[in-house]
Design a binder for these strands. Sequence first.
DNA 1: TTGTGTTTTACGACCTCC
DNA 2: GGAGGTCGTAAAACACAA
Length: 363
Amino acid sequence: MNNNNNNNNIHYSSTMSNDHETGTSGESLRMFDPSYHPYPPQANIYSDYPNATSKIEAFDYNYWPTPATTTHNILTNPTITVLDQTQSSSSSSSSSSNPTIETLVPVSSVQLSQLNTSATISATHHHHHIHQHLYPPSPPTCNDPSTWLGSGNYQSLHPTTNPSSYRHYTTPCPFYSSNNFYDSSQPQWTQPPPPPPQTAIPIKFESSYSPPSYFERSNHINHCQEQISKDEPSNSPQHINWLKNDSSSTQLIQIPPKNPLNGKTRTRDKYRIVYTDQQRYELENEFIISKYISIPRKSALSLTLSLSERQIKIWFQNRRAKERKLNKKRQEISSTRQLNNSNDGDSPSDGGLESPNYYQNYA
DNA sequence: TTGTGTTTTACGACCTCC
DNA sequence: GGAGGTCGTAAAACACAA
């Protein structure tokens, strides 16, 4: 099922799934209809994200047994409208002829028409509970050269810019606006930088690390291209060769181990890569859908994002850790506020994350 | 520009589950 | 035994005040 946003020239492809409470009364199942009335976005859920304009991924969408009125089309109205449910159902507002609809509160900070992320809409109608996932068009991937601006154009436009990073989007990334090198004068993406020379002697660290092969690559583009569906554990043949200082089977930069006993060092320029905004954007969207990545989804993301499955797995682990940290901080703030009102001990919390479902992962 | 704090990748250790 | 979980941590990348 597709929904077209004609007013804003954004096409939202969507998938829909039914949740519990379906059709026990025998009535036909009613699917999502954008002409019905939205419930308020759950604004506080994503309070850890400062850019609230992109954080309406989850909100309730309710429609009523009465016929639709001319109120709010959530897909075409540039401003998401919030229903104030505090009023009685018998009251009516000037914005709606539906007697069950109360005050309509515009939320100017949440504009779906400008949203460049996926949205999850839950709709309820009597015994129906429907989830609709909307997928606005994604920005071009980092590996799509057709979207890059020629290096000469970039140099002429930005002669003094440090070309260490070329993540240069035509629009700011909603999740990582601070990481964008956004410039309204740029009509297209910029070209990734040429690979740096590999003649420099790698700087070694004292820490004990077992670098996977992608740390030994010279740049991120090569990494992207070579990481597809590859997942190399620390005891991979490449790593063993690296430990043995054997260059015969790889093109890795040779780094003699600082300490032959553990033989683990990293080069300073390859310690970790910075994911592109597009990669983090897609990962965040996936995290919104599920805190735990399934094996099929991990595989698919590995291909689409040019990241190894191991990188995706670790990203989700780190992301969950971040979520727990944020929830813990929220809980501390909340308990501090209630300190004068209650002496009850804090209830234990897992940070709001469900336990992993192994059965689901292997299904 | 520099110092400092925070966030982001990535790993090892250790655990549970199948 | 292998997979993936949490936890703690290293170090690069980043943000920002002085």
